[in-house]
């Protein structure tokens, strides 16, 4: 009887040890995954802060430029530039703070009386972002800004950003970057590999790249782009055609 008990205990011990080892490996893998996720979130947070600071401090973006000194006030945004940006960059990020890895949209709110409720708002940047599985990560961040109407009227404002790391942003970013390089005459062709989980389609009539229902405008018109109808890894090669076209092969 005692001998039989030993026969039962040994396999049980072995199975338990295996379960524990699997648990250990799972833990290691899970920590590594969380670490990578945290790293990406950290990157996104850094980019979000940087983009907001560039927008508020660069005279190429929204910062008010002092005519006398040709310098810019820190965090004082020019009302005229806000109006211009919200009109000109209604669907795409402005060049002065463009990031080709992520997509973002900024909203500037002006205080109304003593609160932000019902105050004037301006918005610019990507008109839509990846959704569902196609969206890998997203951060939201804001900083206070001063909105300059005139020398005697500078109001309190709040500039918020939604920054998204997604499949649509990656592919559109690559295509816009290739287009920009081509326009600047720095690079005429480039290629990349992309992994997608949702289909990517191209709306020729509006020059939109879409992931599901989410679409964003592209800088260049695409020629020869074949819709990516299912998830998987795709190789994209582009050739720039002056003045604003990209010949795409997937």
């Amino acid at each position: 009887m005692k001998g039989q008990l030993s026969y039962v205990m040994k396999p049980l011990t072995l199975v338990s040890i295996i379960i524990l080892l699997v648990l250990l490996l799972y833990s290691l893998n899970s920590y590594r995954g969380r670490e990578r996720m945290a790293e990406k979130t950290l990157d996104l947070t850094s980019f979000a802060t940087n983009i907001l600071l560039i927008l508020a401090n660069s005279e190429d973006c929204l910062a008010y430029k002092i005519p006398a000194t040709q310098g810019a006030y820190a965090n004082i945004v020019d009302l005229k530039k806000l109006d211009e940006f919200s009109e000109k960059y209604e669907e795409i990020e402005p060049d002065c703070a463009r990031n080709y890895d992520f997509g973002w949209r900024v909203t500037v709110e002006e205080v109304n009386g003593e609160s932000f409720n019902g105050g004037k708002t301006w918005s610019f940047g990507a008109s839509d972002v990846s959704k569902g599985k196609a969206m890998k990560n997203k951060v939201e961040f804001w900083i206070p800004v001063a909105i300059r109407h005139s020398v005697n009227e500078v109001n309190v404002g709040r500039m918020s950003i939604t920054l998204v790391d997604g499949e649509l942003e990656k592919i559109a970013g690559f295509l816009d970057w290739s287009c920009k390089m081509g326009m600047l005459g720095k690079m005429s062709s480039s290629s990349t590999d992309v992994q997608i989980s949702s289909p990517i389609t191209y709306d020729r009539s509006n020059n939109y790249l879409c992931s599901g229902n989410a679409c964003r405008k592209l800088l260049c018109t695409l020629i020869g782009f074949e819709d990516m109808k299912s998830g998987g890894t795709y190789s994209i090669s582009v050739d720039f055609r002056s003045p604003d076209k990209l010949l795409v092969s997937t």
């Binding site: 950290l42 947070t45 907001l52 508020a56 900083i143 206070p144 001063a146």
Partner: peptide, 22 residues
């Protein structure tokens, strides 16, 4: 810590902008 640094940068920028409002 890094996230906090970003929050702090945002706060610094904000403090400066509030002081410049009229």
């Amino acid at each position: 810590t890094v996230s906090e640094r970003h929050e702090l940068e945002g706060f610094k920028a904000g403090a400066n902008s509030v002081l410049k409002t009229t």
